[in-house]
Structure formats: C-alpha cells, structure tokens
Design a protein around this nucleic acid. Sequence first.
DNA 1: TAGGCCATCTGGTCCT
DNA 2: AGGACCAGATGGCCTA
Length: 266
Amino acid sequence: MNSDSSSMSSRASSPDMDEMYLRGHHHHHHHDNRLNSVSSTQNDLLQKMSEEVLSRHGSKGDGESSKYKIKKQLSEQDLQQLRLKINGRERKRMHDLNLAMDGLREVMPYAHGPSVRKLSKIATLLLARNYILMLTSSLEEMKRLVGEIYGGHHSAFHCGTVGHPAPHPVHPPSTVHQVHPILGSALSSSTPSGLSASLPGIGNLRPGHSLLKTPATPPLPIGSGFQHWAGLPCPCTICQMPPPPQLSAMASSMNRITAESKDLMK
DNA sequence: TAGGCCATCTGGTCCT
DNA sequence: AGGACCAGATGGCCTA
C-alpha cells in the first residue's frame, strides 16, 4: 500500500473545499463576484450574500420589493447550494481519479515509501505505459527463448501459462511453450508493429529515464493460454524445472529497471 | 523567485 | 433534469 494513498490528505493546500469555498477562498473573479469578500463561516457567507442581494435590488422597507428580495435571496441560496453540490461531485470525481492513480502507482516498478515522493500524475502514466510495453516485449522475448530451448522436443502437455498464479512464483508469469496448440498463433505473431511511431513525446519530461523512452522491442499482442489450477502444482515439465539462465537474466534486468525508476522521484 | 505540480471551481457539452 | 466528463483558470505549496 502506498503510504500516501490520498492525494488530498497529503497536501496542506487541500482542506475541505466546501468550507474553503464558503470562507471566500474561491478565486474566479472573471464571472462571479458574489463571493469576493471574505467571511469565516457559512452563516457569514449567507449573510453577506443576503446583504449583497438586498443591496443589488433596491431600497429597504418597501413591502412589495421585500417580497421580491426574499424570493430572490432564496433563489441565490438555492443557486449557491446547487453550486456546492456540483463542486462536491466534481471533487469526489477527482478524488476517485486520484485513488485510481494511487492504485496504479502501487503496481509500478519504483520505490514506494513514506520517505519517497510520489510519482507525478504524468510520470505515472508515462511510466505505466512503458512498463506495459516493456512487459509485453519481455513476454515475447521469453516466448522466444522458451521456444529456442524446448522447441521441437517438448511435445508433452503443458499448461501454457499466461497468468501464472502464486504456487509457482519462481517462474516468470508468462512462461509458454512454443509447441502448445493454443499458443501457436500467439507465438508466431512476432512481426514488428512500428509502434514507436505512436509514442510521441515519450521522454520529453524526464529524458534519460529508460521507462519513459520508447522500448526497443515493439509490443505485440499477448496470446492466450491455459491458467494453472489454483493451489495445485503444475504437472508440466516446464514448471518442474528451474528457470533457464536466460530467464534469470531477464529477471535481473527487471530489477535494474526498478532501480532506474527511482530517477523519477527526483 | 520561477517553474512544476496540484486541488479546486466553473461553465460547457454529452449522455441517460 | 441531473450527472459525468472535460478543459480553462486560478492560487497554494514545494523545490531548485
């Protein structure tokens, strides 16, 4: 869990904005001058609003205009209430968006912790994108390596994992056999897709960071495969064997990427 | 102090 | 009509 899960709670500049708004914090002078004067409570605000409305709509004491004033005042208050309601909804929407952003940060390969500043939103999105691209290319690379190692000789049945669950954590999450019938099409789909052209601006913000650059290997569609049975050891020969050195090297490169991602925290 | 990042308010637009 | 979504505007906080 990210120790700083709520963007709101982490910022001193983010008190309850309904209250703030009612204290006269709002700074939109361009089209709404109702709240330019500062008051300290909602009652104060409403009082000021009433006074402003009254001052805007003629003299006091007249019976007919008093009725109009009250009507108008209520309308202004209703309007105010509606504004607060809309603002609250928008605030909640943005908070939910930030929670989702925090959830994304949690699964990103960079150091989390109370002493580490969060990734910015833009950095999170760019890192996530390139992390996905890297994982996709890693998957293809692992498919290729496994195919090289076992290609042609391994005809026994295999689970063909594409989402390997916990029972076999030593394995890369996407170890598949080239010979598996279901994976055949996925394994053969190794055509470069020229996706680098669709990565404009990657690296503009944090040049030099590997995850914010276009991956060397273009991503490919991920093939489907069998899921392991939950909680049961996989009987296939692949899952019974220790990972080949190439795959271990790939794991170490992942560690390197994680380390490099710390640059984003600067 | 400038610039980056952020939260919030707001009005407009689209959808249900 | 009301809610979701969006983009622009604005000011606060923080860091180099």
